[in-house]
């Protein structure tokens, strides 16, 4: 474990908690893409199948449980508890264009042609594009609530910090995983536009609004 990975995990956990609290407290999922949250639930499910078979550490196991539980809770709130506030008309990204190519790619490019490894690879590829429906929805509605932009910022920063974690691990542990690194780079690049808007607008107290 190194500081970048730890801060990355904290940032990821914060994003998940921010979103849960936003929806629960405001009893509304307005402006939130249910499709992205569905994709994240798939990402965690396919990535943590070794949750009960491969014990790494208490930290690792407990974080995995929190991620899986909170992602399902978020999906449940959007599609069940507060579905009346779900803005389906603006959450129209075709997720099959994300799931099919990443599934095919995980069969073609992986570390090991075994079910668990292919599912892990699929989850890595899917996570890199899972935020697209949410970013698409923000661009369609032309703006996002400030709390939603904090959620997106924390979520984007987590994988950016993981990139530094991989540099660190390559330097000091002779460890690197090209699949995770390339997917992490794609994931971070997708946030660049949002990072720019967040830093130039939200941090100056303005509302995040995209040129529609």
């Amino acid at each position: 474990m190194n500081i970048f990975r730890f801060l990355g995990d904290i940032s990821h956990l914060s994003a998940i908690i921010i979103l849960l609290l936003k929806i629960w407290k405001s009893r509304s999922c307005a402006g939130i893409s249910g499709k992205s949250q569905l994709l994240f639930a798939i990402v965690f499910t396919t990535r943590y199948l070794d949750l009960f078979t491969n014990f790494i550490s208490f930290y690792n196991t407990s974080m995995k449980v929190v991620y899986v539980a909170s992602s399902y809770a978020t999906v449940w709130m959007i599609y069940s508890k507060f579905k009346a506030t779900y803005d389906g008309n603006h959450d129209t990204f075709r997720v099959e264009f994300l799931i099919v190519p990443t599934a095919i790619l995980s069969f073609l490019v992986n570390h090991d042609f075994t079910p668990l490894e292919i599912l892990w690879t699929f989850s890595i590829y899917l996570e890199s594009v899972a935020i697209l429906p949410q970013l698409f929805m923000v661009s369609k509605t032309g703006e996002a609530e400030t709390i939603t932009s904090h959620y997106l910022f924390a979520l984007g920063i987590y994988r950016t910090l993981y990139l530094f974690n991989w540099i660190w691990r390559y330097q000091f542990e002779e460890f690197f995983d090209l699949i995770a690194i390339v997917a992490g780079l794609v994931q971070t690049v997708l946030y660049c536009d949002f990072f720019y808007l967040y830093i130039t607008k939200v941090l100056k107290g303005k509302k995040l609004s995209l040129p529609a």
């Binding site: 990821h12 070794d50 491969n54 790494i56 570390h111 042609f113 892990w120 974690n165 995983d177 995770a180």
Partner: peptide, 10 residues
């Protein structure tokens, strides 16, 4: 196929 490695990251 690149070598599989221990999945110690989240």
């Amino acid at each position: 196929e690149m070598e599989a490695y221990s999945k110690d990251e989240l």
